[in-house]
Design a protein around this nucleic acid. Structure first.
Lengths: 336, 336
DNA sequence: CGTATTTTGGAAAACGTTTTCCAAAATTTC
DNA sequence: GAAATTTTGGAAAACGTTTTCCAAAATACG
């Protein structure tokens, strides 16, 4: 590592004081246009770039934003989280911040990451964190933070959420309008609030069309159990003609189960997913699903966080990211 | 943001000098075990954590490692890159470093990212960078760096590479051993060295089995053109009974083309991929492919980089990550 | 031309660490 | 018990910035 050129060097070269260089380079008033130009040109010529550590020490701002995922979610390989990260990244890059990525385990005893305790970041975005103790530590420490799609409710925390209920309402409504009266529902864990919301949307759509809700048509459990959940639905004496999956991943597991049972999509059974991950349109047949604007969630979160960082008394405001039904080929439509 | 507790506060509380606190906390000699313990317990009690900026300023080490991808590769949504990133992340976390993520455009005029010029990172890992000017700037600046799977050859740079040639050799050899004499090859851009290597492996396997190489069986071009490439192969008067795809993504596009042509895998035509991304085993039928140990590439790169950072005169050493053929269900086997 | 005002640039301190050097205290040696 | 040696802890400087405060220089005013 070559020894870098410092503000002191520039001052010497320009025959001025350090403070003058600083003023010139940071557009501070108090020096003439002439000297400012002079200094700027010398700094450029010598490739001067102010040192981040020096700046951070003085300014108390690092220009870094931390992005925290749960390790257990395998956020990097999970296409849903990846897209959120893309949104976060682009917004951070746009604002000339740095993105510090951190995966944390989800134990109750998890302590605040080093990067925060050491004041390496000005604020953090948390995705999928469901650890109450962790959040409380953060609040105590006074670190600005924002939650994306929190798995547990932290009602008094700044957060960005998905319009889950509306999404499954749209999906279920769409199926019913296309002649499906018996609609199954598969998905994850009822203890997860966002999943509970999705189930709710399904129920509301049934109610809206005066179709009685039947517990037997709903299969919950592990996030990845779509295969067995679907098998159970197919075994029912009066099996559903359509399935709403709370996650595209579940829907794709359903695809396999349906395929293995010798049935065809959508001729024998229709499927609608939720999330619109990349695989949805790659699947055969392409999956009709509820699109979640994942990139938007990420970028909105960063924008919110930036105001949190730079404002003294933050106003709590919870953006709800809308959803949209994307019609593809996995639903059999009624003729009329 | 609450004002944090500094080393000065601890010194005051413990009735010692700052320097003594520093020695105690950093296991430096020159103080008695008694005072060391005393100071440590006080520091603990007051949740003292040394400030990163202060440390960096003094030490000239940030404990940050930069990870640089090309924006055009969409590395976050690309499962291949994601897995590399997972490997990088786990190795970085293991060493208590921070990961600073940075996507750069791939123009020739791209300048060194701010995080490097400002000395925010101790070194960087570059993935898929094919920009000569960029690499040269880096060398000039003296930043420690390592390349992963470089798209162009930078022979004198530290790098981690895939055993591409061996991979396609194994794939092609496997097909031939299973009775396939007419084997097609699809993939990306010949200007990309790693792709050229993959093509080479295919040729070598043919030669090994005394099968003449035919240019007509090889379809190159865009990374994502697997669909049309496969269509072309299927249209040949004597169409191949098997296809080697240089990337799993290409293979999955081939799946669609084959499906759309009304043929079945592997009964009518066999397919082998390369990379072993997640979708490979999820595909129907599960894709036989060449596994690349992507996580290992990432972690090896970080390990190499760490020695580059902490050594004065680095020894250039190029780890070649091995590959392995993973048999699944997309190849029709000969009876014998 | 002398005074009042404004503009300009510099000296010094501060941010939170670590490290070097030195003096005082404690211990050993005779 | 004094001298020589070792151990212990403190004062100060340094890392690269920014900011505050002040004095000198330039300009305006009468």
């Amino acid at each position: 590592m070559k020894s870098p050129v410092t503000i002191k060097d520039i001052a010497k070269l320009a025959n001025v004081a350090q403070s003058t260089v600083s003023k010139a380079l940071n557009n501070r008033p108090g020096i003439s246009a002439r000297t400012r130009q002079h200094i700027i040109s010398i700094a450029k010529a010598h490739n001067f770039v102010p040192d981040a550590a020096g700046k951070a020490l003085k300014n108390r701002f690092t220009n870094n934003i931390g992005v925290v995922f749960c390790r257990e979610d395998y956020p990097l390989r999970n296409p849903f989280f990846s897209r959120i990260l893309e949104g976060i990244e682009s917004e951070i890059a746009f604002n000339h911040y740095n993105l510090v990525l951190q995966l944390i385990p989800n134990h109750e005893e998890t302590t605040i990451p080093k990067m925060i305790r050491e004041r390496q970041v000005d604020g953090i975005v948390l995705i999928g964190v469901r650890n109450k103790a962790f959040i409380e530590q953060l609040q105590q420490a006074g670190t600005p933070f924002i939650l994306i799609d929190p798995r547990d409710y932290f009602p008094d925390c700044p957060q960005v959420v998905i319009d889950n209920e509306n999404g499954t309402f749209l999906a279920t409504d769409y199926l019913i309008r296309n002649g499906h009266r018996k609609v199954g529902f598969i998905g994850g864990d009822l203890a997860v609030p966002s999943f509970a919301e999705r189930l709710n949307g399904y129920k509301k759509a049934l109610a809206f069309h005066n179709i009685p809700y039947s517990r037997r048509l709903v299969k919950t459990g592990g996030f990845e159990e779509g295969y067995t959940q679907t098998q159970q639905l197919l075994k029912l004496s009066k099996r559903p003609s359509a399935i709403v999956a709370a996650y595209d991943i579940s829907a794709l597991h359903a695809y396999r189960a349906i395929n293995d049972a010798g049935m065809r999509i959508p001729e024998d059974i229709s499927v609608v997913g939720f999330d619109d991950i990349d695989l949805a349109k790659m699947a055969i047949p392409a999956l009709t699903t509820v699109r979640v604007y994942k990139e938007q969630m990420g970028s909105v979160a960063v924008r919110q966080l930036r105001t949190l960082i730079h404002t003294e008394t933050p106003v709590s405001f919870t953006p709800i990211i809308p959803v949209k039904l994307v019609e593809r080929d996995s639903v059999k439509k009624s003729e009329d």
